[in-house]
Design a protein around this nucleic acid. Sequence first.
RNA 1: GCCCUGGUGGUGGAACUGGUAGACACGCAGGACUUAAAAUCCUGUUCUCAUUGCGAGAGUACGGGUUCGAUUCCCGUCCGGGGCACCA
Length: 939
Amino acid sequence: MAFDPNSYESKWRQYWRDNSTYRVENPKAGEKPKPKYFVLDMFPYPSGAGLHVGHPLGYIASDIYSRYKRMTGHNVLHPMGYDAFGLPAEQYAIQTGIHPAESTATNIKRYREQFDLIGFSFDWEREVRTSEPQYYKWTQWAFARMFESYYDTALNKAMPISELVSAFAKTGNANVTAATESKNQFTAEEWNGFSRKQKSEALMDYRIAYRRTSYVNWCEELGTVLANDEVVNGVSERGGYPVEKKAMLQWSLRTSAYAQRLLDDLNDLEWSDSLKTQQRNWIGRSTGCQVFFEIDGKTDRLEIYTTRPDTIFGTTFMVLAPEHPMVDAITTSEHKASINAYRERAAGRSDIERQADAKEVSGEFTGSYAVNPFNGKKLPIYIAEYVLVDYGTGAIMAVPSDDERDERFAKHFGIEIIPVVDRPEGSSAADKVGTMINSDFLNGLKVKEAIKKANYEVQKRGIGQAKTNFKLRDANFSRQRYWGEPFPIIYDAEGIPEVVADDQLPVKLPKLDDYKPAPGGDGPLARAKDWVNLPDGYTRETDTMPAVAGSSWYFLRFMDPGNPDAIASKEAMEYWESVDLYVGGTEHAVAHLLYARFWQKFLYDIDAVPVAEPFKKLINQGMIQGVVETIYLHKEDKYFASADLVNDDNRDDFAPNYVLVDYISDYGFDDRPSNLSFENIASFRKWRPDYKDTEFRYGPDKDKFFSHSEVGKMSKSRYNVVNPDLIIERYGADTFRMYEMFLGPIEAHKPWNTNGIEGVYKFLRRFYQLFYNEEGQLIITDSAATPEQLKTVHGTIKKVREDIERFAMNTCVSAFMVCVNELRSSKCTSRDALEPLVRLLAPFAPYLTEQIWSDFGNEGSVHLTSLPVHDEQYLVESEVEYPISVNGKKRATAMFSVDASKDDIEKAAITHEAVQSYIEGKQIKKVIVVPGRMVNIVV
RNA sequence: GCCCUGGUGGUGGAACUGGUAGACACGCAGGACUUAAAAUCCUGUUCUCAUUGCGAGAGUACGGGUUCGAUUCCCGUCCGGGGCACCA
């Protein structure tokens, strides 16, 4: 019987399922547990398109690693679940009326089939879905705890809000060390005199989950608010709809309070540098100085933030953000009209418009002046868009000599420029080098010393202090959507928010007939009157949580998925602790990973988890890209033109149309441009009946109709999704798995092509043929393996183990190929040599190895055996081949015994026949012998 | 603009701490088997020159440097990919 994966793969799929081969147990009380290892994949959003060939890349690598760990004595937690809340299912529901839960369940079923097909070793008994009430109960529970906590900046952790309440009652808020943006001050007497409502509002300024009016990214088309990272180039990431700034009452999480810890704890993680840098940039720590400037003729002081207090003598004007709260108070009557016009214009402009002319200089004078605290100089106060209201204090001291933007502004408005740093040639202001000039007591100091001195002086004179700033903003946590977690929040008749009691959780989503947003910026839940209105005049919050909520802690639930009393039991948490290896794409480098780290730290603070970081080691798999194929439709004459008829001059006359990639021949070849054959054109017409009579115009090459080909993301809308099912049907899952690994390093981005898949298929067939004859009978014998064969096998064991450990699955595959090629040419049939190879290959090709293992007459799965260990004795060489170089250029090779002395090797090398012509008549200056490596003769 | 990455044959890639550049695979060329094709198997395949045989030289984006020796380390330039972007 010839090699035929289809003949056995489905059998083993069923076997693994029936026998729960991959079930993982938590250790029982009193039992001495095996060392644990937690391998996690970023769980997918179950979209309607199903898995494409890009998704499994990371899953396969982590599956191999999990199997490797399992076979080397570890208790491996390797679960999978679904990030099941999200926008697409809801939009689909709006279009079709099908409940998101229903379409999501359908999609999940499809995903599961595909997962099973590929042969992943997930423990499906631990599956989680973020949209299940028993899961989101704990999302709500964590939110409730955040509502009931504040961040103590002295203790550097979250604390119960009740402690803050008693502190307020005793001493007011003047001395509390709590993270807040509020400037309100109140005494104990004032606090005690507050109404319930006033107290509630005051506490909102401190809660870690809090509600405030903030400028948010409002997307009218989607009817919801979006987070900054859901907005790309001023349009929504999903759908590409315009996004505007809007002031709305929104739930937020005080992520900014955790900025320093999120930054510090990065250092100990085994993450790539680029990823850590991305997180650091996002957190955006800067150290500077907060300084108060008096305003001429006013009692109010203007607070600014600068990283360059040394340049304070170069300040020639001040700038406020247009939205700055002090603008009204300082604008003089004759400037009111123009200031208001400017502010209106700024408010009406979307981010994309602002960015488009970021280099444009605009601004408006308020008519007021600030006073430089060091020299009393009067400084005109402007407002301008280039100062952002939500960074620092929303106001700056402008130093045109040492800031590019200030310089542009000063030149545009004809404002004085005073040089204060004598910079060396070729350096810029950002380099912070040079010597201070025109700066009174700072003169003669180097910039870095001057910064320290200026900080000191500011503090001494009581006009400010050194301060650290972060770009990281609080997370906006409200969405006006249906398909997300309801907030565990109710409002009493006065509108005071309260958390829903723990025993009332989960707050389940109500049934709805219409998923469209309700009018007035309310979410669809506002339509569910029976659900919203509670006895005693209470009402429910109608916003829902964003998609990041459920994914911020799902890894914890896998530790103890069914637990009704906690996220997971204490024992389970202490045993599994955190994720040892996390594999996923870079698209989640910032948002998901940052939120998950924040969530974990909060849970750590309230003693709900034992460690403060969720993911010890992280590997980013690259994206497998698709080929995007387009053909050109003439806009006026409505015919399709072959790509060779389209050039830069007439390109605008054509509208590009994506073509289903299946209809394209020859893509991926440089010398044979992608094209549609006659049959393909017929298929295309059938696929798009609206074009069934459209003419296809050929270019000079009359045989072929060319399409335009480029590499791009695989997506349903580009019709270029390659489905793994078809590959598996043709070659089997083992080939698919190994081919994806063989494509290259796991982190690399690469376009999908099947050019090399035959090579991997051939390899597996040859592996099979080592064990079976053409009739499908085992041909293994008990004859002794030769030393060469044992060397091959043990060398392979050693290399594969090392390469798995450093996640180099591609070189593992080639090591297997080399091994099989060698054993094949030496006609190896020895069980001693071949049996370990079955176990070694098992993590990569689970189906074939299981079949061979069973044909060997073994009971039980090969995947529950142990990985072979290499025996060094088969690898020791008596002789080593040394390259002999002359002046670094290899000229000959020679064999030397491993224990040959340096001197012997040197002597033999210089008398070696092949090198004579290179050293003849020249003086040998030096001979370098690296034992076991090489010889270099320097002449 | 700033930050992070990467640049190796016709192609995907290998070379882990500086030590035989191009493993493995695809593709291509030639051969065997076949009436023929497919499949399979064998041989060759970095480039240039030479070729009757031995060979010789160059070569890891480019230009320098350190070193006995550099794909690997350092400096500069160019190009690709990703992220951030008026962050004071």
